[in-house]
Write a protein that binds this DNA or RNA. Sequence first.
RNA 1: GGCGGGGUAGCUCAGUUGGUUAGAGCAGCGGAAUCAUAAUCCGGAGGUCGGGGGUUCAAAUCCCUCCCCCGCUACCA
Length: 532
Amino acid sequence: MAEQPRYYLTTAIAYPNGAPHIGFAYELIATDAIARFKRLDGYDVFFLTGTDEHGIKMLQTATKEGITPRQLLDRTVPRFRELLVRLNCSNDDNIRTTEERHHRSSQAIWDRMQKNGDIYLSKYSGWYSVRDEAYYDEDETTVDGKGQRLGPQGTPVEWVEEESYFFKLSAYQDKLLDLYARVPDFVLPKERLNEVASFVKGGLQDLSISRTTFDWGIPVPAQPGTNARHIMYVWVDALTNYITALGFPDAKAAKFQRYWPADLHVIGKDIVRFHAVYWPAFLMSAGIALPRRIFSHGHILSRGEKMSKSVGNVVDPFALMDAYGVDQLRYFLLREVQFGQDGNYSHEAIVNRINAELANDLGNLAQRSLSMIGKQLGGVLPKPGAFSDNDQAILAAADAMIGKAREAMKTQQLNQILNTVWDVVADANRYFAGEAPWALAKTDPARQGTVLYVTAEVIRQVAILAQPFIPASAGKLLDLLAVPEGERSFAVLGGAHRLAPGTTLPAPTGVFPRYVDPEADANPGAKSRAKP
RNA sequence: GGCGGGGUAGCUCAGUUGGUUAGAGCAGCGGAAUCAUAAUCCGGAGGUCGGGGGUUCAAAUCCCUCCCCCGCUACCA
């Protein structure tokens, strides 16, 4: 028997200096759907999430509140863990960059890069904005009326000069360009790779990778010739989490052997450069294999506008789950948004998807067919007669879903998978209305049984394929079809396997409730508006 | 400024080796059905395909030009 293929995928690690944002929830949902899809499709999956806990912003947030970074984390990190649980994420590990294993790992990759001659000590100076956490060129800055120099974001900057270690990023320009040419889907969507490539073509400067001005970070390994206390700055620390979780630097770590290189890093489009330029350069320098793909997802906008605290349109993922339900939120984000593009969130849009597609199209189809089996056939799945052309057509459509889904998954087109599945749901509704099994009950009971059987079989395949996206609801649907736990993987899709006639089904219950605006009950006349 | 993507029905989008009446979903309008979570099904309607010019028997699709939006990036001042 062939060895089970492996699949390692990650989200970016989130920065827990506040409450979890919808953007992180979106990334978790999408990555979880991919992880679940791959597992159901027979892969040995390792799915990593985590939090990025160092850096000056963390220190500043803590200081502002008069607590230590550690205390801040004790308060915020549990909320991120809670989000994972609430979202029903199937992650296999959740790394924290403050963990001891990660300190060892980061120091080890640093050592390797240094031994390769890519790290040197120099001086970093420039106009620094604490608030932006960024250096600016002098000509990017302006001086306001009070003599205060400001950065391009309008934040105050100050002249900072400090000793810093540098990474010879400039030495990797050609190797990176070669990588992009050799592996054209290294970054998806492909327009993102084009942007990265043109950035690299424009020339790379060496990267400052340490700081001495604060100490909330991983110490740089002891160096001969200097006693300055450097900590690693941002990206060496953050990116390395992907190998830490597999047991790096232990060369014999079973997980590292098994799962590295990663198949997929799912990240937000705002950090493409770090993953598509810095990370492969670090890995090349350290002599570690490169990940196979970076997928950059878009941002979730609120009614077409960027969410920001100042505008006050930030959406809390917990509030959304409370208002609409977990699977409903997962479904909406993955169905509505083309993965890789920006997407729009609005109350109207999510309610529409929930009611039209989950409750009406799929939920109601299941309810009407299964309750007919329950009421008229004693709850026993009927044995079908010979299949008519219509039966064969709808079954063929259902059988074809898995092939299309796998094709779409090759490039992480999650919404396309849902399009495929819900196209079949729409077909099934047409089929059901056309065959009118409620009328057949009197005229041709045998034929009615066949129609109900075919419908149930289509729902079975729909539910199995829907599992990665709406795991709890799809599971309930499969329960209603009395599908055993061991027969819910993609191996039983495609027509080689069918529902077993004669099976007794449980009494059907609603799986996808309609969303009813809470205001409607109290105030029936009022036009309801967006709540969350 | 440079590079890239885009501007198609009220909304979100599909549609380029140029070729019959430009498509889908949602919304809206009309009808059918009544098994079902008042869900479902059917049908009409709705577009000068950003503006202008050109090539062609024929252009959403090719060429020129202009306008607007988005992304990446640079720089003058």
